[in-house]
Design a protein around this nucleic acid. Sequence first.
DNA 1: TCGAAATATTTACGCGCGCAAATTTTTAAT
DNA 2: ATTAAAAATTTGCGCGCGTAAATATTTCGA
Lengths: 343, 343
Amino acid sequence: MRYSKIRNMEEFAAISGISRPTVSKYFNDPGSVRASTRARIEASLKKYDYQPNVFAMNQNRRTTKNIGIVVPNLADPFFSEIARRVELACIDAGYSPILASSHGRPEMERENLLSLRSLKPAGVLLAPFGRMSDEDAVKDISHDFPLVLFDANIGDVGQAFVGTDNAKSVDLMVEYLCRSGEPPCFFEMKFPSNPNANKRRQAYLDSMHRHGHEPSIFQADGKGWHFEEIGKTEGGRLLSSKAFSTNTVLCSNDRLAIGMLSAAYGLGLRVGHSAGCDIRVAGHDDHPFSKFTCPPLTTIAQDYEAIANRAFNDLFEMLEQGERLSERTETTFEGRLVMRNSA
Amino acid sequence: MRYSKIRNMEEFAAISGISRPTVSKYFNDPGSVRASTRARIEASLKKYDYQPNVFAMNQNRRTTKNIGIVVPNLADPFFSEIARRVELACIDAGYSPILASSHGRPEMERENLLSLRSLKPAGVLLAPFGRMSDEDAVKDISHDFPLVLFDANIGDVGQAFVGTDNAKSVDLMVEYLCRSGEPPCFFEMKFPSNPNANKRRQAYLDSMHRHGHEPSIFQADGKGWHFEEIGKTEGGRLLSSKAFSTNTVLCSNDRLAIGMLSAAYGLGLRVGHSAGCDIRVAGHDDHPFSKFTCPPLTTIAQDYEAIANRAFNDLFEMLEQGERLSERTETTFEGRLVMRNSA
DNA sequence: TCGAAATATTTACGCGCGCAAATTTTTAAT
DNA sequence: ATTAAAAATTTGCGCGCGTAAATATTTCGA
């Protein structure tokens, strides 16, 4: 009975010997009907595979079960990984995630938010570009729907933010590097596409001062999301001209570090902390590929799982209560030092 | 006038001095109304930022402007890259792409297809798991909506298939490797998660015979999508036990190759084609990361752009004509040999 | 200038379901 | 067995728009 002739809830209710409003209740919340009726509905559901019309459901409904998830760039494995976990959290809670990538273009973030609006989402989970984001667009969304930011924060927009404590994580890394060798230089992009970069720079400065070392920052030209390319080109330039003031480089993120490792390899430099090595390279994020670089990359692991779950839960609370959080919350998780062979 | 009080098309039509059906026509196809009316509508659209209710639109409509895009795993940069291009092709043509990743789980592909159905898509673009896919689910979709497969083919399901010509691309690589050094061994997974793997193995066998060499295949245990991990572990085992019969390894895909490069590095083996190197490693796909491996990976580049555009166009034709293609088409593009330093 | 063709309007119905109020039935507690 | 509470049913309206047919209006060529 795969191709059932059931055309609508009316018919399905009739053939199941149950009233339509009750069936409607069932689909809105299976737990809201008596166990015996639920059983009858589900039995009949197996015989005739009917499913309600989503558009008809959502049209006249106060709130849908849709949750918008917007990330700046799915081509970046960091976001692909965290988006995956957020998505699964939504599904587990019975919501329909709608994933949208802005493909690295802030104006597309705006478009994504606009078209999300027309889907009347129950709530929105947004990893914004940061100051590249169209703040008005984000505020508009936040005005109409519960909004939780993750990864990157924007002032006081949205009802909650969830991310990583850059200050602590960078300090963790700086402390380790200083303890185990020469103090690190800091390598980043001149015009970073992510606000965490600025926090990490500041954290580096603070941490270096705290440890009594002179900080030394190197900024690569180049814009966009080709971090590895930039890390390779600009990092390679710095390496070959021996511009770094110490033999240790802390990169603002793993993707830059991956590029730099590639450049170092090309220059015949030996990367690592063992005897005979020319340079140490460290990153931040524990990018999915960092285990497989040559040498494997020492980095700070972000707690993907915790961030994703917490972001969803913050949103979920609002959905359950039917109201915004009483005050904006900011949650940051601590990074974890992952020691591999690159530093 | 950001927060307009326009509640529906009725109000918008009234305030614009135009009848509702005409406004409706405009939203369905702006070109279907007289230029002067179009101008009036668009002028009024700027004053009161009204947009029609998507659910009400789609509910009573024969076909929506939604296009479902389903890929097996967005965490794999190959799919993230090709999905991105498909998505953009849809947007450019005025459709609303709805991207869903099956996160490496075939049963989730089935769920994705099921929930897609409820969105009444105009058509579906599917990169299937292959024989891991629930063929019935795919056929069901294809029964109700125009369906184009890409990357991986399934028998005669759907109205079109678009992918890469594995036979040619592998032959290209084998020919190059034989010409420039020892003939390649073939390294792959015992239970590949993608049907292209089988075609590549066969292509390797054919090609080796054609060139008069004895083929030699090595299959790694391990399932799932952690290709780099498997490549590193199993590839490393083979390398350290000197199991490969020649000094050249052709990997079934770049992700395996990346793992193997990592293993080789760990073992202190020098990878490349120059004098003093211990082994050559090549891959397939031109994974976004392959430029940055150590050494950079010699591989076959798939024509992402061509595949994505062709897949969309095949679907688009059906949408325009309002009927299925007269007969199923299979389009394959040739891969391009990308010579870097690993082989 | 006139008439046919193109376009716009009016009118009216229906899509499939949410939702609320009033009523009836079932369940569970006394 | 009685009764109150819980759950199901009946009834009926409305959401915002698609769409079709009939009618009115505009446009444009001859």
